[in-house]
Design a protein around this nucleic acid. Structure first.
Lengths: 211, 211
DNA sequence: GTCTATAATAGGATAGAC
DNA sequence: GTCTATCCTATTATAGAC
């Protein structure tokens, strides 16, 4: 399909820093990872990092932006759409889970710092995502597609599943991203649908527009 | 030495350290929290901490033990039981979620360090929990109570929901712990049951406080 | 763009008075 | 059990050569 990188492909240093930093941040936390460890993983010396990023914080900051960027756009577009809210939620979920699975960075790291005050400036975009997801759930409850659960609690359960999926698969270039995305999205929909037999229809309709 | 605080219950310093440390570790991470910050929250000086705990690591270590202790016992007992596996899974879930909600400490902190190599010695008990949960799911799939999902993926989704619930409610002494426990356990069961109409029976048989 | 050398500071932990 | 004073190491970041 896509043109393969040559066998002696050179990943730019800046890119390698993001990859290795995301991996280390995920295991040991942002504060638990030193710039020396990142540099060692990238196979450069510690001060060389600062040629590519002005500070350690800016490395994490870029990873947060990558995580929040497209997800909130997709969620807001689906939340504002017409027709079955259950289908729109499914479409958003499949897109987001596949994105997480395919990402070259381990975005667990982002989830571990969401409450850290030093990244408080990044919370606005996250709030937008929460609102869009809850809106879709509320629409589906109002239309009778979903059982009348607590919309807040359901939204939280979804976030937690997405977050867990991030922790588990991100940065690994999962080969069957679409299969995992469908399985998890189906798990969530089955928990919410008033009539579980509608899941087949939704899955069929959701994959039609798939990339 | 110090004047007694009227009729208010006096919380021992050691206990206050665990509470404040768990709260700070959850927001800022284990490495992101300094012993000076913990001491400030407890309203003592930094070196006084070391009269109660030999090291900062030992504070976190105790929180991990509190989190893992009873959960694994309950899960293993239910996994080894007889009768409906769906009911046993529900009972374990309700117990664990209510425990998380009622705990005086913010056990999110524990979840944030599970992959940190410096707490690698704490992973054995965690593995026991994973095995017990997956066993219950497999039993329920084999008996036809659950749809034939990927048992690994389902176990992970459950962990993620529990973990999220920890992040969201722990350390807050949630008043309606049993209600939250039933709602979340029901969400999980509905996602897994072959026949969703069986949920009512399971809740009646397994829940302590009906909703 | 990467290196060596180093500045500047924050952090965990100890000693010993009271 | 808590305090003050302090040690020592690890850490982020800068300066300047090549």
């Amino acid at each position: 399909m896509a043109a393969q990188e040559s066998h002696e492909e050179e990943v730019p240093t800046r890119e390698r820093i993001l990859r290795e930093a995301s991996r280390l941040f995920s295991r040991k936390g942002y504060h638990g990872t030193s710039t020396r460890e990142i540099a060692e993983a990238v196979e450069i010396r510690q001060p060389s990092l600062f040629h590519h990023f002005p500070s350690k914080r800016d490395i994490m900051s870029e990873l947060i932006d990558i995580d929040h960027g497209e997800s909130s756009i997709v969620a807001e577009r689906q939340a504002a759409g017409k027709g079955s809210a259950a289908l729109r939620l499914y479409r958003y979920l499949v897109w987001d889970i596949a994105f997480i699975c395919r990402c070259a960075y381990d975005l667990t790291s982002v989830e571990l710092v969401v409450d850290d005050p030093i990244f408080a400036d990044k919370m606005a975009k996250r709030d937008a995502l929460v609102i869009a997801r809850r809106s879709m759930i509320e629409q589906a409850i109002d239309s009778g597609e979903f059982v009348s659960v607590d919309a807040d609690l359901a939204e939280k359960a979804i976030v937690w599943i997405l977050r867990g999926d991030i922790a588990d698969t991100a940065g690994q270039a999962v080969p069957d991203a679409d299969v995992v995305a469908d399985q998890l999205a189906s798990f969530i929909l089955r928990a919410l649908l008033e009539d579980a037999s509608q899941l087949g229809e939704i899955r069929a309709a959701g994959s039609i527009t798939e990339v």
